[in-house]
Structures are given as structure tokens and as C-alpha cells.
Amino acid sequence: MEWALSIPRGQALACIDEPWDAKGTGPGFLADVREVCEGRFGSIKFTRMYFGQEFCEKALPSQKELDEALALAEQLGMNFTLVTPYVTETGLEAVKVLLQQLMQVQPRAEVVVNDWGVLQTIADDCPTLTPVLGRLLNKLLRDPRIMTQRKEPEEEALVRFRTCSLAGTPMQVLLDQYKVRRIELDLSPQGLDNHLTDWGYRLSLYLPYAVIMTGRICLLHSWGLEEHQKFKPFSGGCDRKCRFYWLKMSDPSHQVRKSKDWVILQKGNTIFYREQKEFLKEGLDKATRVGISRLVIQREPI
């Protein structure tokens, strides 16, 4: 198993010294994740750095931060993966600059893409880089209600919810044309497909945050703005309140029921569920059986 440590931004590079945040108390506290992972695999050594994030073009790293991350990864002997979000035209220009920079330093480095346009850009402008299909372009459902809408979810239905177009020949041929050999997954509520290896890709799994939904209207950015400025996609800079707050979500109407398997959280413009210990344990057992070859550990997803 290859272990990758996700570092979403330059300010978080220091966490490389304490990747599990053993002293923390917030949502970034990963002692439980470490216990499950080490219980299954023994002592863990991170050999790859995932730098960047998937959800917000406002939080793209600067060129200086990318330089620092590349230097740190090299210094520690870690492989390097640049993670990119979905982007508007403005964000695309910024991503292009980062891709060119990366290609000069590490021509064959991996880039996680979460936007068809970024995949096209790599094919057109940076063909030596290695694209990885990010989990936002993997359309497997991650709906926490999938297991609670019925008392006894039917296995036959769950099996079908464990697969998506990535498992089909048309998408496989298309992605092969774009030199995509690896795809990324979340631990979905319905579980992983027993036949994941038949999909024909190398497989990465993110822990412990799975993405439910993301968008360009940011709940936290709007906080403190004038009424007419709130709840809109915005141009210009961001004061990144998401660095300072998580929002823990609960639904007293029980449309989305409480679960022992996860806690639902919003950070910035994205809703996640954070997998809990037993769910993680079962998920990891399954992951090893179905051919997951890389685990990406996130202290925080944005």
C-alpha cells in the first residue's frame, strides 16, 4: 500500500512533521484514523505528498507555495502529486501557470484533475504530466441517506450503486486516450465495488473525509458581507474563513439521519462526511480486498 499525505495549502506544509495531528482536538484530529490504519497495516510511512485541494479555485496555491511544497517533498524523498479543483475561466488560467511550473521541475509528476477542462489542458499543453482522475469526476453516489431510507437496503440495489460510468468501456477508452491510469474514490456509504480491479485503473482512496457536494457559492465566505453580496459566486479574493471554521451539521427533521458511521461537516463551499472508526475499519478491510493501492490521508480537505 502506498501512503499519501494530503496538504491542501502552503500554510499547512508544517503538518508534515506531525501528520496525524496527535495533539489536536478538532475535526483535524486523526488519532482514530491512525489507530485503524496502523492496526491494519502496521507502522505507516508517507511516501507521497498530495499538495493542493479539489474544491475551490480561490484556494489554489501560489507559485511560491508550489515551489516550497516541491522542495519539501524532494527533501523528504516523497513523490509529488499536485491536486487541482474544478475551475472557471479565471481559475483555469491560474492552474495553467501551476502546471507549467510543475512540468519544468518534475515533467512526469502526477496531477489530480477534478475538471474535464483541466484534463484537456494537460493533454494539450502538458502532455508529460501524469493525470489522475479526481474523486469529483467519479460520479459514484455518496449520499448518506442511501443506507437509511429503507430499513433493510437491498444488496442487489447496493451493488448497482457501487458502480458508475468509469466501469464501462466507453469511459475506459476515453480516459485511456487522455492517459488516465489512476482514479480516486471515497469510501461511499454503500461500500466499494467487489470488482473494482476489473474497472482497469489503479485506485486511490481518500480517508477520512468523503465529499457529498461542493459548489461555487460559499456559505462561509458570505458571512459578514452585505446582504446584496451574500450567496453568490464571487470574483476577486477570498479571506478564507474556511481556514478558521468547520460547521458541524445535524438534521432534526431526520431527512438525513444521524449515523454511527459518520459525522456530516461543511467546510467552506463543500459538505463532507467524516468517517468514524468502525466504518473506517470495515472500509479499509474491504479496500485491501478490492485492490486499492494508495490511501490518501487528509487532516483537512480544504
Binding site: 475535526p27 483535524g28 445535524s250 431527512q255
Partner: peptide, 21 residues
């Protein structure tokens, strides 16, 4: 699975402060 997940007005949000370097 029960309609839109996101715009249920019943959602309760509890802010949690992040300890960050």
C-alpha cells in the same frame, strides 16, 4: 432518497473553531 439534501431548512450548523499553525 428523500428529495434535495442541501436546502432542507431544518439543517442545524454548529461552528467549530480550527486550531491552526
Amino acid at each position: 432518497f428523500g428529495g434535495a439534501f442541501c436546502h432542507n431548512p431544518a439543517w442545524v450548523y454548529k461552528p467549530i473553531k480550527i486550531k491552526e499553525e
